[in-house]
Design a binder for these strands. Structure first.
Lengths: 339, 339
DNA sequence: TTGAAAGCGCTAACAC
DNA sequence: GTGTTAGCGCTTTCAA
């Protein structure tokens, strides 16, 4: 890699001091410099293909124009839209996102935070919040600004941008009861995830408000297809009355439920209705197309980035969390209960 | 954000010179320092929570330990596994990936390259290659090392890591002809993508080798569900004999084909067999589950990262491209041709 | 409006 | 085995 052009090269060619080059090329200080000089500097910079070194600038200005994004697994379809939303907001503002996958694993969380702090990120967007995210405290101690995305964290308090999960469950339950369902099982995600708790509580509240509805909760250890499959298989294997509807903790669980139903020779929605959560990619292409709660993941990413940049620029912590509206999308996996 | 601890703080506490701290904390130079001193420095660093400033280090060493990843759209399910593979390889080696989405748009490509060059990435992995990626020349001129992932680029020559697409199409065609299909349409992606060209040529070759097979090619402008839907709708709308099988340029197109079939009240695979390409996430959950060519995207990402780091460390350009094996996954969207 | 000088935090060459 | 010195490429006082 041949030596890159530096500000001194440009200064020499334009026959000015490098400080002048710096000012001429920075939109915020450009007005301090004579019109003609700016032109000359620009011409020189263009000619040499000068691209300022962001590391040198960052070292001097003490901000890296870089945002760390911590998520469990990019391969989980929930996250790419969030990341895209974040990047779309950051990019035109000169910021770059640094991604770190944690796989819900404490060692990786610690490593991720360490790597991001070493790169002196100006802020953190944490989409992998859970109740015992110890490494997050390190970031807090380092004075890094952070915003939580989708999932709340336990110990460390940062503002949260999420969807209105409780309302999503309410709508799902209203839809199912309208269809005549009275025996409903909620397959809930692990308690360490705030979204699981919110959804479960909303489910319980909805049942409490409708004494004719018999609600039951099954908790699974992870929000995966496998967990959904196993939970549904257990439900079908157990004796007693089969529920007529399932409210899954998320779409992956719902997909596992669909697969289990199929494996048992049962039909959805004829033998059981299923509702998912998130409206992830391809939810409409499953067999049957999934009725689910749409969460505006792309917009959530944008909002998180916006909130974080606001915090960085103002230096103030915001007062309240941001809850974006969700909406029920009715498709083929729900139907009136069979007589 | 309170001032972070620097190497001088650690030096003061350990009562050594900062150069000693630097050496003691760097695994590669640690042996130069006395055992006891290393311990003392480590203790001091731990106590202060010292995390070296990667920008300062990068400025001094002239490498950022950073790799730029250029892709069309993270939201396209083809890419998250590749990115994950890249990150999994980079992370334990101290590198971080910087993502840039281009949306197949020239302005964004230029902006992406510029932003990555400003951050002085040590190398580039380009998953958005196409025949007129002009901005790539800028990277080449800057002396940046690069590896192409999945798609080849036109003008600028860099090593490519991809799947054995030609063989994938051969296997798909063998499968279809075994099932008795003789009228087959290939819905090909745009010519600017090397994968489209390779697949199309393999399709043509397979047809040429089987004179009893009537192959036809329909080209679409993008590898999307919408393109697949429109193409299939046009095929069904046109008079003449309907093909008994479709070889889609990728899974998204195949999905569009499935949707179109359904919209026309036709059944897959009864009225037409469909083969996709990539085996992207959830291909097995569609209606019907998609027969497709599995491309090892995660492994391709790893390989690309490995190749790039090798190039960076050795300074040598590799001789040949890397082609990873692909395999046909037979599922429900293909069946024997109806008599 | 522009120049000079200092320094961000680190590592590498050179001393001893 | 450890200290000294210089400098990576930039921005930002302070002067003029």
């Amino acid at each position: 890699m041949t030596r890159r052009t530096t500000i001194d090269d440009v200064a020499r060619l334009a026959d000015v001091h490098k400080a002048t080059v710096s000012r001429a090329l920075n939109p915020r200080t450009e007005h301090q410099i004579g019109r003609e000089t700016v032109e000359r500097v620009r011409a020189a910079a263009d000619k040499l293909g000068y691209i300022p070194n962001a590391m040198a600038r960052g070292l001097r200005t003490a901000n890296s124009m870089t945002i760390g994004v911590i998520l469990p697994d990019l391969t989980n379809p929930l996250f790419p839209p969030m990341v895209r939303g974040i990047e779309d907001y950051l990019e035109p503002r000169g910021y770059t996102a640094l991604l770190a996958n944690t796989d819900d694993n404490e060692a990786a969380e610690t490593a991720a935070i360490g790597s991001l702090l070493a790169r002196r990120v100006d802020g953190l967007i944490v989409a992998s919040g859970h109740s015992d995210f110890a490494a997050l405290a390190e970031a807090r101690d380092a004075g890094v600004h952070a915003v939580l995305l989708n999932r709340d964290a336990g110990g460390v308090r940062f503002p949260l941008v999420g969807g209105d999960d409780a309302n999503g469950i309410r709508e799902a339950m209203a839809h199912l009861t309208d269809l005549g369902h009275r025996e409903i099982v909620h397959i809930a995600g692990p308690e360490r995830l705030s979204t699981s708790v919110t959804r479960r509580e909303a489910f319980e509240a909805a049942c409490a408000a409708r004494p004719d509805v018999i609600g039951r909760i099954v908790e699974v250890p992870s929000l995966t297809i496998a967990s959904g499959f196993e939970a549904m298989t257990a439900i079908l294997g157990a004796g007693g009355k089969r529920p007529t509807a399932i409210v899954a903790g998320n779409d992956l669980i719902a997909l596992g439920v669909l697969r289990s139903l199929r494996a048992h020779g049962l039909s959805c929605p004829d033998d059981a209705s299923v509702v998912g959560f998130n409206d992830m990619l391809f939810a409409e292409d499953f067999t049957p197309p999934l009725t689910t709660v749409r969460v505006p993941t792309l917009q959530m990413g944008r909002e998180a980035a916006r909130l974080l940049l606001d915090i960085i620029q103002s230096g103030e912590q915001p007062t309240a969390d941001v809850r974006l509206p969700v909406s029920l999308v009715v498709r083929g996996s729900t139907a009136p209960v069979r007589p």
